[in-house]
């Protein structure tokens, strides 16, 4: 359900709503009408042409750290 992927904002039009996002050299227009306070360089989660959430880089790091931590406590699977 709800295919959406994180993508970086590379340009925002004068209207403040129409933006270009990029993933690995692929660019496409998205609407920022449903989010607030997003700027160039931010990562947003994009669904059906709309940014729905700004990705929090600190939280992203924290989650990755959780994975690593769980791995340490559990040890490697056979």
């Amino acid at each position: 359900m709800c295919l959406a992927i994180p993508a970086r904002i590379v340009a925002i039009a004068e209207d403040g709503v129409t933006a270009q996002i990029e993933v690995e050299g692929v660019r496409r227009p998205v609407s920022l009408a449903l989010v607030e306070g997003c700027g160039i360089g931010d990562y947003v989660v994009v669904h059906v042409g709309f940014a729905l959430s700004r990705l929090d880089p600190m939280e992203a790091e924290r989650t990755l750290a959780l994975f690593a931590e769980a791995g340490l406590t559990g040890g490697a699977a056979s």
Partner: peptide
């Protein structure tokens, strides 16, 4: 290619 992978992710 990275671009093909990215475009595939965007379009499912």
């Amino acid at each position: 290619r990275a671009e093909v992978r990215a475009a595939c992710e965007l379009l499912g």
